[in-house]
Amino acid sequence: MRTRIIAKLDVKPPYVVKPVHFEGLRKVGIPAELAKKYYDQGADEVFYIDIVASLYQREILFDTIEETANELLIPFAVGGGVRSMENFSKLFHKGADKVVLNTYALQENPDLINEAARTFGNQAVVVNIEAKKWDNHYECYSDCGRIQSEKDVLAWVKEVEERGAGEILLQSVDKDGRQRGFDINLAKQVVDAVEIPVVVSSGAGTLEDIKELIEYAKPSGVAIASLLHYDKLTIEEIKKYLRNDGIEVSK
């Protein structure tokens, strides 16, 4: 099975930013330009998360999304501040293939998952998990790791699967942006808990980190941000390394 290598853009319009621990934002580029660059490098997909829409309680900005979508002939997942079926429709209209949900489903109305999956198909509904580690469990957060939910990560991923989500984007509040390796135990627990694909993010610092994650947790995809934004590695280099080590990836 081929592990998908995905480029993740955390966007604070009009810029792609890179938060560390989801805070301390640094501007790294323009969404459409970076999306094109990673497409040319061989990304399997692009994830685009407007990381402030929910916090500012405004709608996601559609123009930037359309501009970015126009650069891509690969799947494009978009999220941030999504809270209605109208948001879903509009995002698909602007070129999204999948919509990523977190805050609203977690903190207010999980039924939106069911409704969206029924209407747009399971594969179009991705649930974003921001996991933070406590002594012996992980808790779901929202709004870039700012707001607690008191929901246990493993219970919540099973619930969203049951409700019809087609995929999970798993982020770690503790590891994000640090480039010091993934939380591979968290990843394995989540991958094993559900039947749907899990894309793991947060923590890639070296090629070995990515390989270790894939071999240990067997996620369906790995989402990379900082490593790419700072030109430490290209997607081509990552795929070549993994292929040489016997891990299947697309061309």
Binding site: M1, R2, R4, D44, P75, N122, Q123, G166, E167, E195, I196, P197, V198, S220, G221, S250, K251
Partner: peptide
């Protein structure tokens, strides 16, 4: 006997 939906390049 694998994750469904099947997503990705094949």
């Amino acid at each position: 006997d694998a994750k469904v939906p099947h997503l990705g390049f094949s």
